[in-house]
C-alpha cells in the first residue's frame, strides 16, 4: 500500500514537472527566445545565406516587397554568426532541411566574405569537425516547427522564467523572417561621452597589452 502511494506521488510530481516544463517552453516560444529561434520555425522557398553580415544586413521582407511576385515566398534569413555558419558540410545539411523542395522559383542570396571560410587556427580538420558538433546547425534535427521544443532544449541557454517577464528594451529587433535588425538610436550627449570614454579605456587597455608584449619581445 505504501509503495503504491509512493509510486503515485512520484508519478504525479514527475508529470507535473514535465507539464510545467513543456508549458513554460511553449510560453517562451510565443514571445522572445533568442536571435536565432525564428530561423527554425518554418520551411522556406527562398533563403539568405551567409554569416553575420547577411544575418544583420539583409531583410527578407524588403526583398520580398521589392521583387514583389517574382520570387517564391516565404523568404527566410538563414544566416548566422560566423562560428555557426561557415560554409561546409554542416551548413549544407541544414540548408537541405530548410528548403521547401516543392518550390521551383526560389531566390537564394549567398553572402560571401572571408568569415565564411574561417576555421580555428592551428587545429587539424578532425578537431575543427569536433568544434562543428557544438554549432546550432549540427545540434538541431528539427528545422521547421513552431513551437520548436528541440530548439529551446538544445540551443536556448537562458532560463524559462524570462518568458514570464516583459521583454527587455533591446537595441536589436528580431524579425520572424530571421532578420536581425539593429535599431538606430539617438543618444544623449552623456551617453555618447560614456561610450567614447569606454572605447578610449578599451583602446588604452589594448595599447597597454601591446606595450607589455613589446617589452617582452
Amino acid at each position: 500500500m505504501q509503495i503504491k502511494s509512493l509510486i503515485l506521488k512520484i508519478s504525479f510530481l514527475a508529470s507535473l514537472l514535465v507539464i510545467c516544463y513543456f508549458g513554460f517552453v511553449y510560453n517562451i516560444t510565443q514571445g522572445h527566445v533568442d536571435r536565432n529561434y525564428y530561423k527554425f520555425t518554418y520551411k522556406a522557398s527562398s533563403l539568405i545565406l551567409g554569416i553575420s553580415r547577411a544575418h544583420d544586413g539583409i531583410s527578407p521582407a524588403i526583398i520580398e516587397q521589392e521583387l514583389n511576385n517574382s520570387i517564391q515566398k516565404p523568404m527566410l534569413n538563414f544566416a548566422f554568426e560566423k562560428t555557426q555558419s561557415s560554409y561546409g558540410a554542416v551548413y549544407l545539411n541544414a540548408i537541405k532541411h530548410k528548403i521547401d523542395t516543392t518550390s521551383n522559383s526560389g531566390l537564394f542570396i549567398l553572402s560571401v566574405s572571408p568569415g565564411n571560410f574561417l576555421i580555428t587556427k592551428g587545429l587539424k580538420d578532425s578537431a575543427n569537425i569536433e568544434l562543428d558538433k557544438n554549432t546550432i546547425l549540427r545540434k538541431m534535427t528539427n528545422f521547421n516547427s513552431h513551437p520548436n521544443y528541440e530548439y529551446v532544449r538544445k540551443c536556448y541557454d537562458g532560463s524559462l522564467y524570462r518568458g514570464l517577464l516583459k521583454p527587455q528594451k533591446m537595441f536589436v529587433n528580431i524579425h520572424p523572417d530571421g532578420w536581425l535588425e539593429f535599431k538606430s538610436r539617438k543618444l544623449s550627449k552623456e551617453k555618447q561621452d560614456a561610450i567614447k570614454e569606454h572605447w578610449m579605456k578599451l583602446t588604452n587597455n589594448g595599447y597597454r597589452q601591446v606595450d607589455k608584449y613589446q617589452k617582452k619581445i
Binding site: 510530481l13 507535473l16 514537472l17 510545467c20 516544463y21 529551446v152 536556448y156 537562458g158 524559462l160 522564467y161
Partner: peptide, 16 residues
C-alpha cells in the same frame, strides 16, 4: 514545498 521546488527548478534552471 514540492510544487514550489518543481516550479523553481523548471523556471530558474540554466537551460544547457
Amino acid at each position: 514545498m514540492y510544487i514550489l521546488f518543481i516550479f523553481g527548478i523548471v523556471l530558474f534552471s540554466i537551460n544547457r
